[in-house]
Design a protein around this nucleic acid. Structure first.
Lengths: 263, 263
DNA sequence: AGAGTTCGAGAATAGCATTCTCGTAAAATG
DNA sequence: CATTTTACGAGAATGCTATTCTCGAACTCT
């Protein structure tokens, strides 16, 4: 406590002043936070009530029994409100997931369950209290990508850990766990959100299981053995390359025109 | 309403009348199509000019030297215009891809290149003439999912064929090629679009190669052997990196300056 | 040419975010 | 406690767009 540790040079304000200001500020800050919370709650209610995120700022204001004046004093705009909501929802989701995962056995199984949970949480549904991935989330994705990325952080961290766990256990290969985690998340979230096939064709909605299989084995198909591994035991961890052991590309010339047919 | 097979009862119009009407209609239809085309062209110009899709209907109307009246007579709303644009862009993209892929060797390599192309086309960029994936595309995704799915069809078909090709050649495993194709597409498109990591952390933007690796081997890591397979399969495949970079084809650009300062 | 349609120009309407004004209540200050 | 400062509520005002509506002119078909 001898000298000022940080940067006293450019700030001629002594510590006592800072503290005084701080004390004086605390109350105001608290009040502000309370108001902000009221806005957030109102918005959340509106979303779950109406099942959509097409609420207007007016509605939020009315519901929270506050004023437009106040709203724009606390938020830079509607997008900030949405961002806050989004961030909060994702953060909660991560926590919730951790809890649920704590009871799951193996590393790979945990990852699998996590994918299922994420998929589920990302599926648009009526009465969803935590709209992880709804229309507005998508809008934010294009209008404020960086902040969305920040919001994703808690989940990304979780998934990165899961991937790393699986790798350490020898159940998976991922030189850059973070990227892999990101890819898995994206696949699960967007697939859950996106529409399935169009009118014609098989009515194939891609499910969480499909996503998982894809993430697991890609297209080289480590599927069967993966199931074995996950179901039976994790004794021989090193990923066996059983799936793709057929003749590589001898007949590539013949299949060349497969991509030219109908349009 | 029990015995009516089709609807001949309420339509006493004989065939000749239909034909007459048809003939009488043809011209009008042609005119209409012409007008529609003018709107579409104007919109496309606006997009490439401004680099964004934030054009207003007014701008489109002015640029096309037509009227609001006319616009809403031909389109159900702005969203239909966008949808038309989107569909067209995706369709062209599919065709263009097929061309580029026709010079690529093995099935797996073709799929790889396709992923690269799709990724590239989905990467937000200035001066993109085919906005595969932009803000409005995202809006459409939530407001008209079915139609978006329909718009995706050409590309989905292409990718399905590619996946099937790879499967037949024994280079891949995909019990449901269509789903797999869909997953690959989603992964490529959304990853290209999405932001990388947030502020902190490694500045790791996930590239097309990462996407490909993920699609290929998932997390069970069929990576190394996959590379071996793809690389050593053909001794001198000129398509190693040839098609990776986009070869800009200056098409449909000659009559651009028809729209001069009218605004 | 005449009946019917389509179009252009632009005013009118409507929804919504954001800003602004003003008078009041609450807080901070001395 | 009186005063000055700040925050708030209510709601009008603005700005931007999409969408609709009106009316008279141009065009099409017969």
């Amino acid at each position: 406590m001898s000298v000022v540790p940080a940067e006293p040079v450019e700030s001629p304000e002594p510590a006592w002043r800072q503290r005084a200001v701080e004390r004086s500020t605390r109350a105001a800050k608290l009040r502000a936070e309370q108001r902000v919370q009221r806005f957030l709650d109102a918005a959340r209610e509106l979303i779950t009530d109406k099942g959509t995120t097409d609420f207007t700022v007016q509605e939020v204001v009315e519901r929270s029994r506050q004023s437009l004046r106040s709203f724009y004093q606390h938020f830079d705009g509607k997008h900030e409100l949405l961002l806050a909501l989004f961030e909060d929802a994702l953060s909660r989701s991560a926590i919730e997931m951790r809890e649920k995962l704590s009871t799951v056995a193996g590393p790979l199984e945990r990852l699998k369950v996590a994918v299922g949970l994420l998929y589920d949480a990302s599926t648009p549904r009526q009465g969803q209290q935590s709209p992880l991935f709804t229309d507005f989330a998508v809008q934010l994705l294009v209008s404020h990508p960086d902040q969305v990325a920040t919001a994703h952080l808690p989940l990304l961290t979780l998934f990165t850990e899961l991937v790393e766990g699986a790798v350490e256990a020898g159940s998976a290969v991922a030189p850059r766990p973070r990227r892999t985690a990101s890819l898995i998340m994206q696949t699960a979230m967007f697939t859950a959100q996106a529409p399935a096939a169009p009118v014609g064709a098989p009515p194939s909605r891609i499910g969480a299981e499909d996503v998982w299989e894809f993430c697991l084995g890609g297209i080289t198909g480590a599927r069967e053995e993966a199931e074995v591994r996950a179901g039976a035991a994790r004794k021989s961890p090193a990923a066996r390359k059983t799936a793709a052991k057929r003749a590589p590309s001898k007949k590539s010339a013949t299949t060349k025109d497969t991509a030219h047919g109908t349009a």
